[in-house]
Structure formats: C-alpha cells, structure tokens
C-alpha cells in the first residue's frame, strides 16, 4: 500500500513544521500571485489574484510538496454587508431601543443595494478548499471575482473535475460566472428561477410565491405577500475576550490597510 506509507511519514512530522513547509511551498509556487491570509486553528489560507488562478491551482495539484489531489469544496461569498450590523447600540435614546425592524442593512427589505466603489471591486469572492490525501494537508484559497455584472472568475474544472457541480452551485446562488465551465446551468433553484438567492441583496422571503389557482386550473406565481421581519437583529460587539484576535485579524473582504 503506497498510500498508507505516504500518510504515515507525513503524520510523523511535527504539525507546526509541516504547516510552515506548506506555507513556504505555496508562497514559492505562487510568487506575487498569492498572499497569506490570517487563520485560526492552524489552517492555511491564501488569497490568489484572479489572473493566476488556473496556473497556480494546477501547480498546487502537481507539485510534490503540495499534491492537492482532491477539491473538497468551492463556495461563493458576497461581502456586500460584511461588518454592518442591523442594530446600532452605541447611542441609546431616551425612549429605549426599538425592535431593530428598520435596519440599516440592505439584506432585508430593499432591493437597491448601495454598492460603493470599494465593495464593487471586492464584493464577490470564491473560496476553494483543497485537500491532499497523499500528504494529509489542507489549504483554503480565496479569489475575488472581477467587478461588474456578472462577476467572473476562471473555472477550475480542468484542474479538478470535481469542481463541476460546486461551480454550478456558486453560479446558481451567487450569479458568479465561471469562464471555461463546460455546463454552467442552474442546479439548486427551480426551473425558470430569476435572481441569485444567496446574494445579500436578495430578501430572505424571496420575490415570488406559488399557489394553486382554481379558476385558471393551474399553479401560478405571485409577488410575495410575506411581510419581511427580523426576529433577532444582527449586532456586532467588540468583545474584550477577543481583543487580541481582533487586532491581528484584519476584516476579511476589505482591503488590508
């Protein structure tokens, strides 16, 4: 069993040095196209420039120090409302707090998202989790999509065939186009669905609802009648227990200053 001996030899090394070796290898392979991201729990994460995605991924798969043979996951993310809370608790009023229903967050009620120049550049990102079964190591890669509609990024299906459905899902839910994908169709939403439901400016209750119409004798779509509401407002607290980690972790999604 070749696979067994490989894993055993990898495990016998101390975890810290293995992590550092991986960081060094990825930095060498990627050069200027990669930059390390802060992580917790001993994970390794890098940000990639969109231009070098395919080349770097192929190198990460083929390089013997990395050997990332399995793509575990591809996930889209929308940074539109990152770090904005729904209920500001800094200035208390004489009448006390409301229920936080009229929030500042665009996620809940309004469709017109105020996308400023900063977030438009770095609004959508795609995250890849890769795994090396041979060397028993993991890596997370993040790449920002090109600004504009639709956001675009290269497809890694040629590098890892398993990316096919994961990319279809990210396309369906976030509207991210994967250049070079062989079969970019919707996958999870309904046939004929309009919009991309996991975007932060897509309301939780959706836009349409269905019911059976007895007069027409068929199922019809109507604008949604549910009143959107927030049960628990989103609050961000600067918890003193996490102060050190807050200082060393720059907010993801915003440019590192």
């Amino acid at each position: 069993m070749n696979a067994m001996s490989d894993i055993d030899s990898a495990v016998s090394l101390a975890p810290v040095s293995r992590r550092e070796a991986l960081v060094r290898a990825v930095t060498e392979i990627g050069g200027a196209r990669v930059s390390a991201l802060p992580t917790v729990a001993g994970e390794v994460a890098f940000e990639l420039t969109a231009g070098g995605l395919i080349e770097v991924c192929r190198a990460l798969r083929d390089d013997p120090r990395c050997a990332f043979d399995t793509l575990i996951d591809v996930a889209g993310i929308d940074y539109l409302t990152f770090g904005t809370d729904e209920w500001n608790t800094h200035d208390a009023t004489a009448t006390g707090f409301g229920r936080g229903v009229v929030g500042r967050d665009v996620t809940r009620h309004t469709a017109e998202a105020k996308v400023d120049a900063l977030t438009a550049e770095r609004r959508f990102a795609v995250t890849y989790h890769v795994l090396s079964v041979r060397l028993n190591q993991r890596l997370r890669l993040r790449v920002y999509c090109s600004a504009g509609e639709p956001p675009m990024v290269d497809s890694v299906v040629d590098v890892w065939p398993g990316a096919n459905w994961f990319e279809r899902e990210a396309f369906d839910l976030f509207g991210i186009f994967f250049r070079g994908h062989p079969d970019l169709r919707r996958i999870l939403t309904d046939y004929g669905f309009i919009g991309h439901p996991f975007r932060k400016d897509f309301p939780l209750s959706g836009h349409v609802e269905v019911r059976y119409d007895a007069a027409q004798g068929r199922v019809i779509y109507e604008p949604v009648s549910i009143e959107p509401r927030v049960l628990v407002p989103k609050v961000i607290r600067d918890d003193s227990r996490y102060a050190p980690s807050l200082q060393q972790t720059p907010l993801v999604g915003k440019p590192n200053v």
Partner: peptide, 28 residues
C-alpha cells in the same frame, strides 16, 4: 458574538467528509 474570521471544520460523517465553512464578521 463570534470573533471575526473564518474556519472550516470537517468530520468523517457516515457518507464522507461533511464540512462547514463558517465566516463571521464579529456578529451574533
């Protein structure tokens, strides 16, 4: 509230690797 950051936790579920990638911006 959970400190800002992200992490991926995976378990060997009966069907294979079940993982959760969680991104927090410091909110509840």
């Amino acid at each position: 509230t959970v400190p800002a950051g992200e992490c991926y936790a995976a378990v060997e579920a009966p069907k294979g690797e079940f993982g959760v990638w969680l991104v927090s911006d410091g909110a509840n």
